[in-house]
C-alpha cells in the first residue's frame, strides 16, 4: 500500500482544519472504500485524518419531528435501529440490500454518501478515466459498460453512484449537515451529489475540508407504503443494475404524495419531481405507474452493453410502485 501519514482527530474543528489545509488529505471513518482505493492506487492521499473518535455516533430526534443520524453511525446500527425500522423502513431495506454484514458493521453513514463509483475503469489505473485523472478520457464509453449510466451522463463520464442507502435518502428528502472551514451548512439531499458534466472528478458538492456531521430525516417516513427493489446479478452482495426506492402517501386509494428514486442508473440517485407529480391525485393503477416510469426514463440513453437497463428500469419502477401501493404495515409484521 502507498504510504501516508496518520492523524487521529480529537475534535471536529481540528479534523476540518487538517483536511482543509491539504487537498490530498482525506477523512477516514469505516475505511471500507478508502482503504480499498488506496490499495488499488486510485486514491493516493498523503495524509489521512481518523474521525472515528469524534462524537458523531448518535441517533436522536431531529428538528421538525424527524430523526438525526450522526455521521459515524454504522450502516448496520442504522438499519436495525428501532426508530428507523418503525418510521423509515425504506431506509432499513435499502441499507440491508447493500454490501455484506461485515462491511455494514464497519461502514459509516457519512462514508456511505462519500463512497466512489465502482466503474471498473475508474479502478483500473492502466486505463483512461476522467474521474480518476481528469482529461485522460473515458474508457467506459466504448468499453464494457453494462453497469453504467443511462441518465444524466456526459461524454466525459458514464459512471454510476453505487450506494443503496443514498437512493432511499433521496426518496426521503434527507438533509446532509456539514461543517467546514467557513462554518456549518445544511445541504438538501438532491443537491449533495452531482452529475458528471465536464468535472466528473467531483462526486459531490462538498468543498475542501467540509465534513459530514449528520444526516437528518424529515418527519414523513412513508412507513405504510414503500418499496426498495434492487435488481442485480447475484441474489445478494452485488451492486445494483437498477434499484428503485418508491414511497407513496395514500388516502382512500388516491395518491397524495409520491417519491421515486433510482439507483444504478446515474452519477447520483435519480429523481424527477415532475414525473412523480403525475401520480398525485390519481388512483392507484398500473397505467399511472407506467406513465411515471416513461416520464422518469425520458432522455435515457444506452451505451451499448447497458441498453437493457432502460427497459429494466421501466419495469422495476412499475413493480416497485405496485409493491409500495400494496404494502401495509401488516405485511411488514408478517415478513
Amino acid at each position: 500500500m502507498n504510504r501516508f501519514a496518520y492523524l487521529r482527530a480529537d475534535d471536529v474543528g481540528a479534523a476540518v482544519r487538517a483536511v482543509a489545509a491539504d487537498p490530498s488529505a482525506r477523512f477516514i471513518a469505516g475505511g471500507t472504500n478508502l482503504v480499498d482505493l488506496i490499495k488499488e492506487n486510485v486514491e493516493r492521499p498523503t495524509r489521512i485524518v481518523d474521525i472515528t473518535r469524534l462524537p458523531l455516533g448518535e441517533i436522536g430526534p431531529g428538528e421538525r419531528g424527524g430523526l438525526r443520524i450522526g455521521a459515524l453511525v454504522k450502516n448496520s446500527d442504522l438499519a436495525y435501529h428501532p426508530e428507523v425500522e418503525r418510521r423509515y423502513p425504506l431506509l432499513s431495506r435499502a441499507i440491508l440490500s447493500g454490501a455484506s454484514a461485515q462491511l455494514r458493521n464497519m461502514a459509516s453513514t457519512g462514508g456511505n454518501l462519500m463512497q466512489r463509483t465502482r466503474c471498473s475503469y475508474f479502478y483500473d489505473t492502466t486505463t483512461p478515466c476522467n474521474k480518476r485523472e481528469p482529461g485522460t478520457g473515458c474508457a467506459a464509453l466504448g468499453g464494457f459498460n453494462r453497469m453504467h449510466a443511462i441518465l444524466g451522463a456526459s461524454e466525459q463520464c458514464i459512471a454510476v453512484n453505487p450506494s443503496d442507502m443514498s437512493v432511499a435518502l433521496a426518496a426521503l428528502e434527507a438533509v446532509v449537515h456539514v461543517t467546514g472551514p467557513e462554518g456549518d451548512r445544511a445541504i438538501a439531499f438532491a443537491e449533495f451529489h452531482r452529475l458528471p458534466g465536464d468535472a466528473p472528478q467531483l462526486d459531490t458538492n462538498l468543498r475542501q475540508g467540509e465534513l459530514i456531521t449528520a444526516v437528518e430525516l424529515p418527519a414523513l417516513g412513508f412507513a405504510e407504503h414503500h418499496a426498495y427493489l434492487k435488481i442485480r446479478d447475484r441474489a445478494s452482495y452485488a451492486f445494483a443494475l437498477v434499484s428503485v426506492a418508491a414511497a407513496l402517501e395514500l388516502q382512500g386509494g388516491t395518491v397524495t404524495e409520491a417519491r421515486v428514486a433510482l439507483g444504478g442508473v446515474a452519477h447520483k440517485p435519480w429523481r424527477d419531481r415532475e414525473a412523480e407529480a403525475l401520480l398525485v391525485g390519481r388512483r392507484v393503477a398500473l397505467e399511472h405507474f407506467q406513465r411515471v416510469a416513461d416520464a422518469l426514463l425520458q432522455g435515457a440513453v444506452g451505451r451499448g452493453a447497458n441498453d437493457f437497463k432502460i427497459e429494466l428500469a421501466r419495469r422495476a419502477i412499475v413493480r416497485a410502485l405496485s409493491h409500495a401501493a400494496g404494502r401495509t404495515s401488516r405485511d411488514d409484521a408478517r415478513r
Binding site: Y6, R8, I28, G31, T32, V35, D36, D50, T52, S76, S100, A101, Q102, L103, N105, M106
Partner: peptide, 24 residues
C-alpha cells in the same frame, strides 16, 4: 473486502480485517 476470508470480531462484531487499519 470481497471474500470474507479475513473476517474477525472487533469489539464483538464481525469485520473485514483486510480493510481495517490497525492503527485505527
Amino acid at each position: 473486502g470481497q471474500c470474507g476470508a479475513c473476517t474477525v470480531l472487533v469489539d464483538g462484531r464481525r469485520s473485514n480485517s483486510c480493510l481495517s487499519l490497525a492503527i485505527m
